[in-house]
Design a protein around this nucleic acid. Structure first.
Lengths: 105, 105
DNA sequence: TAGCTTGTTCGATGTTTCACGAACATCGAA
DNA sequence: TTCGATGTTCGTGAAACATCGAACAAGCTA
């Protein structure tokens, strides 16, 4: 699946939106109105499209948006997509909320 | 269908690529490896997504990319999409070739 | 009017994608 | 080693999408 196709799903745009600040996030922080298997699927699509990178640490995973690589390869794409998402009110169903483990680090 | 979804199909990206110079093109100039009903469908999707404008003149139609509106609403999106298309080698199946009527204008 | 051209609409079909729950794999902790 | 937490994979069903050919509508032209 190409970059554009990856960015054409509301949940995935929401994930990108949440990751847009460049902060690494834990799986557990991601709040999306889908089953965990579905979330796993979407994160795999984003990964395969080269939009994110995943780091494993023990049993837990962390995602980060590959901002620099994206800016290098598709200059301006990310801001444009985020602006379009705002404009079309897409992606607001996804949020971050600190998991218990995270907050005690 | 949103802007991103509209841009996630290879044929449609090809059409945008071909229209990218801002030149108005006739239906008949558009060469894509699909049936005319399918081409009509894709052009409708682009139109509905606000990417193109269609003008009718007698029985014939002309399309043009809405470059300024796009730049205003989603700054940088179009160049980024075109760059991504180049990079992923998407959209090259669509071309323009002058129709007989066009060439005699 | 009859016929040709151009593009749209319709109905059917096959593919892809999204979504879920269940089963599985892996790692750390008890 | 047993348990609990965390993601992934699998099987399945539903919805969306791409595609085609045929039928249709509208407008020139003979």
């Amino acid at each position: 699946m190409g970059v554009m196709a990856a960015l054409s799903d509301p949940i995935r745009v929401g994930l990108v939106r949440v990751l847009a600040d460049g902060q690494e996030r834990g799986w557990g922080e991601l709040r999306a109105p889908v089953a965990k298997s579905t979330l796993s699927h979407h994160l795999k699509v984003l990964r395969d499209a080269g939009l994110t990178r995943t780091r494993q640490e023990g049993t837990r995973c962390f995602v980060v948006l590959r901002r620099e690589e994206l800016q290098a390869r598709y200059p301006g794409l990310l801001p444009a997509v985020l602006a379009a998402a705002e404009d079309e009110d897409v992606g607001h169903q996804v949020a971050v909320s600190p998991s218990l483990q995270e907050s005690s680090l």
